[in-house]
């Protein structure tokens, strides 16, 4: 009885924690995100990648975005805020320690073509200004593709990596514009390709949009977004 009672309590406790987690997730979601699933997910009709693993914002105070010159950003994005930040393939709910902050990864799918980081943070009642976001996703390509480009828009500055290689630095006080910056020609491997991004903002409404373009500049849509591990 007691054990059972304990088991019930444990189950209730787990349920409570899960429930809180789901509520928290739901708060972060509406109406900008839905929880990511294991269902097959392709880019949207314009090739935008909507399924991402997003880390809760890192405290990075900047009263103005005028500091986002190239040298500042290179230092800011090279700084290690949490363990394995350039290599980790997080699972939903994984936590990291960034300085004094304990931050959680969230597996989400944007309901828009762009990923509204401001709303992600706001929904979790986290800081929305003076922040640094990390985003990771995994793109499955059915074949090797050469001469593709990663096209990004971000608010504000950002840096992007493909399979561990830096492919874009977007400096300055920037607004999100589709295809604002486009990488040099890249190769998507057959199978898994890891896209990683870091977006920094002072007093701005953080968001980003990402898609791959083919040699003719057309969006690549026959990809599968598996997203690390759910």
């Amino acid at each position: 009885m007691i054990r059972k009672h304990k088991s019930c309590l444990l189950a209730a406790g787990i349920g409570l924690v899960l429930g809180l987690g789901l509520r928290e997730q739901a708060q972060a979601s509406q109406p900008y995100f839905v929880p990511a699933t294991t269902e097959i997910k392709t880019p949207d009709s314009k090739g935008f990648i909507q399924r991402w693993m997003l880390l809760e914002p890192i405290h990075k105070p900047n009263p103005r975005n005028t500091v986002f010159v190239d040298s500042y950003l290179r230092e800011a994005f090279a700084t290690e805020y949490f363990k394995d930040q350039f290599t980790v393939l997080p699972k939903d709910g994984d936590k990291v320690k960034a300085g004094e902050q304990t931050l959680r990864w969230h597996a989400l799918e944007s309901t828009n073509y762009n990923v509204k980081l401001f709303r992600f943070a706001d929904g979790l009642k986290k800081e929305v200004y003076g922040v640094l976001f990390w985003a990771v996703t995994v793109v499955e390509s059915p074949s090797e593709r050469t001469d593709v480009r990663l096209a990004v828009g971000s608010n504000s500055a950002s840096m992007w990596w493909l399979n561990g290689e830096e492919v874009l630095l977007m400096s300055g006080d920037r607004r999100m514009v589709v295809d604002d910056c486009v990488s040099k020609r890249l190769t998507l491997k057959k199978g898994r390709n890891i896209v990683r991004g870091a977006v920094i903002n002072g007093p701005g409404m953080s968001d980003f949009c990402v898609r791959f373009l083919d040699e003719q500049g057309a969006p690549i849509k026959d990809l599968t977004i598996t997203q690390t591990a759910l």
């Binding site: 073509y113 828009g153 607004r175 999100m176 514009v177 589709v178 295809d179 604002d180 949009c209």
Partner: peptide
């Protein structure tokens, strides 16, 4: 051909 809802201009 980019919408201003996509930041175009």
């Amino acid at each position: 051909g980019r919408s201003m809802l996509e930041g175009g201009g």
